[in-house]
């Protein structure tokens, strides 16, 4: 079976600083891959390059066998890639439910002609999406927050919402940038249990995380990167005990 995501020899420079150095990675379908590494290793840059927010200098990225390099971000997202951001991005002055509704793809109501000429269809779709949103929020355990503004939520709850947005988008590949950093242990368990269940539902996950315990707990494969290069790749236990990784984390 072809990998869900295939990154081949990708390079990216910022004014002479090398952010990604001949980076390659195959992400198999229905798996959870963790990316670890020190700050400035190029982890977030990798996400930005995959999702088209930053243009790559050279190399190739395929998603479901389709070359996505140099495609505008929104088109990559429409192919079935969803992401969260390290500096949490949500529409904070909209309700939780509206944020989720925004994330559904192919909405007829987003075309104005439908709003004016087929209002019935739009209304029906909206009702269906609202039900789906409620379902999703109760799956995440935050259904009581549906009509709260995102800005009134705790940081952990906001991270849950951004994960819920990824799920709502129906994407096959989820790129999660530090899904559990900076939140309390109880919420961490909550989020990890949601992530762990994703491959069963046919999703592929790549996550960046500093919390080693969390990575060990959910990931099938772990990649350690530094200075834009892939240093080690393997099953969690072996990567954790790799001398290069130990050295980096002891420093």
């Amino acid at each position: 079976m072809t990998p869900a995501l295939n990154i081949i020899n990708v390079n990216k420079n910022f004014d002479g600083t090398i952010a990604l150095d001949d980076f390659s990675l195959e992400v198999p379908r229905n798996s959870i891959t963790g990316i670890i590494g020190p700050n400035g290793a190029g982890k977030t840059t990798l996400f930005n390059v995959i999702t088209g927010f930053l243009p790559l200098d050279s190399g190739k990225i395929t998603f479901n066998d389709k070359n996505v390099a140099r495609m505008p971000s929104y088109q990559i997202m429409r192919l079935g890639v969803a992401r969260t951001f390290q500096q949490l991005r949500l529409i904070t002055r909209m309700t939780v439910q509206d944020n989720i509704l925004l994330s559904f793809q192919n909405q007829a109501g987003e075309h104005l002609k439908n709003t004016f000429f087929f209002p019935g269809r739009v209304k029906e779709e909206e009702k269906r999406n609202e039900e789906k949103a409620t379902e999703l929020l109760s799956f995440m355990g935050i259904e009581d927050k549906a009509s709260d503004l995102v800005e009134d939520l705790s940081y952990g709850q906001q991270k849950m919402v951004s994960l819920a947005c990824c799920l709502a988008s129906g994407a096959d590949l989820l790129l999660l940038d530090e899904p559990v950093a900076g939140i309390n242990p109880e919420t961490i368990d909550n989020i990890l249990s949601v992530i762990a269940k994703l491959p069963e539902g046919g999703k592929t996950v790549v996550l960046i995380e500093h919390n080693m315990d969390a990575v060990m707990q959910v990931c099938h494969t772990v990649v350690f990167m530094d200075e834009g290069k892939k240093i080690v790749e393997g099953v969690p236990e072996s990567v954790r005990n790799d001398p290069a990784v130990l050295k980096a984390y002891l420093e």
Partner: peptide, 30 residues
């Protein structure tokens, strides 16, 4: 017409663009 637009799913997209263009793009909005 304005009322219909701003309260439609399209209006929701507009507001998301106003608040955070990057997020709107990440949700697949053109």
């Amino acid at each position: 017409v304005c009322h219909k637009i701003v309260n439609s799913p399209f209006g929701r997209v507009l507001k998301s663009i106003r608040e955070d263009e990057i997020f709107a793009q990440a949700q697949g909005k053109n």
